[in-house]
Design a protein around this nucleic acid. Sequence first.
DNA 1: GCATTTCTTGTAAATTTTTTACATAATTCA
DNA 2: TGAATTATGTAAAAAATTTACAAGAAATGC
Lengths: 282, 282
Amino acid sequence: MKPAQLTQTISDTMIDLRKSERKVAEFVLKEPLGVIRMRIVDLAQQAGVSEPTVVRFCRAVGCHGFQDFKLALAQQLASSPSYGQIAVTDTDSTREYTHKVFDSTVDTLLKLRDSLALENLEAAVAAICNAQRVEFYGFGASAAVAFDAQHKFFRLQITSAAYSDPHLQNMSATSLQPGDVVIAISQSGRTQALLDSMELVKRSGGIVIGLAPSGTPIAHSANIAIEIDAKEDIQIYTPLSSRIAHLAVIDVLAIGVAQKKGPQLQAHLQQLQSGLSSLRID
Amino acid sequence: MKPAQLTQTISDTMIDLRKSERKVAEFVLKEPLGVIRMRIVDLAQQAGVSEPTVVRFCRAVGCHGFQDFKLALAQQLASSPSYGQIAVTDTDSTREYTHKVFDSTVDTLLKLRDSLALENLEAAVAAICNAQRVEFYGFGASAAVAFDAQHKFFRLQITSAAYSDPHLQNMSATSLQPGDVVIAISQSGRTQALLDSMELVKRSGGIVIGLAPSGTPIAHSANIAIEIDAKEDIQIYTPLSSRIAHLAVIDVLAIGVAQKKGPQLQAHLQQLQSGLSSLRID
DNA sequence: GCATTTCTTGTAAATTTTTTACATAATTCA
DNA sequence: TGAATTATGTAAAAAATTTACAAGAAATGC
């Protein structure tokens, strides 16, 4: 019924439109973000046509009326915030680049949310719950993610460790028991040393969960691949959003495990909390 | 400005609402998908209240009026298909909590984006650019943030270190030169050991940038406070979103520094990139 | 426990916004 | 070029939203 991509429909319908309706179409495509806050009179004026023409345009693109049209447009724009150009330039003000950093991060997260393979997540959660030991391997920016993950899972009463040193990884990998889990984290998906460690894990009978971009060697090599295709900012600084994307996925795994472990955990966490409070001041 | 996750806002605001407004809130949360196609009369009737009450409800949750409210709701639903009526399947609960993690993270980020004190960010960037050394201190979950930050700033050709050990922090703090910068990261804002380290830094003439919730001792004690009030998930696990919020702020700082350092950096980063590629496979 | 004040909520009116009806202008085709 | 057709705008009607206000409920003080 409702076209998923309204702007697409508008482009497609364009040739069938009358001259003044086309003016409306062009204006909408040029400034879709502005349109969703406009009244019909504003849009009519700005497009240089009369109000009924706007209504006729809305009907022509398959909507029931103007309100209906705005709603559909708003929905489309909500799912692709990238409509507003996100790229930090030299001349950006503090406010601008702050917004851009947040917006692009949010954008990455929303896209990732909808592209995650749920069955792999479930498999990963199940594997983690069954493991005696859970370890996190990562280098560079992924090392910080690994340590964060370790901290988080440790709190969930899971024996976990994080290694960012290939020697330590190798040593630990060879001592794993069948069923133990290693989560290999890589933003590039192509780190040779990590692949080597993964090989050792698999030889020990361990299960490797890979957090890496799809189609990369690490995603292929993992027993359970959680593919994370965060749009890399190739500019000034590397793994920015992708790192946060990885953390979010770790969070999802942690929640999944927490849910599975159930209420036994609650008591433990409360205890932990009271222990921590002695380190804090009022 | 506009709440990203309207339903979240509605839940949060619920306690402040009057009885009949709450009826509207409950109805909206129960059937959000239906509401976006309703007129104000329909919603009023179905919720069992009068039309002005609906308008008052819309205002109470931060919208300008009913239309505005519907628009915001539509936008959220467009980006959270989980709200759509989907038959309960085996994968559904996974889907649900996955969405919750992402949605609440996004929510936190957007709220933070609009509440950051820009002038403090600018002051922080300026301080970092002037420093000979930049160090990151944090414990627990904030330790991972500190290491991530260290990694990021190191790439920007800034002599940086990260310590999550109070002894190392103290030793390093006493050896700082005036003008050097320490970024103290705390999700609680009340870690005693961190406050002690900060005191030492200040005695050495160093500048302390504090990343902590507003109104906390660490925020007060810092020379430049960047207040981060991420809604803590009191549930199963602690610092979840707040940790990502801290990372995002670090990103903003890094961008700010990168921008100030200007193009001289570009060449350096390219060099770095080619160096890294030897560690990766094709 | 009653009177007074304050806060809630609905009714009805006013305003705003959208849509329809119709007339005029523009275009097409013979 | 002129009749027919289509396109567009004007103005009025309808619909929807918002405001003003009054009645009712709850809370507070005496």
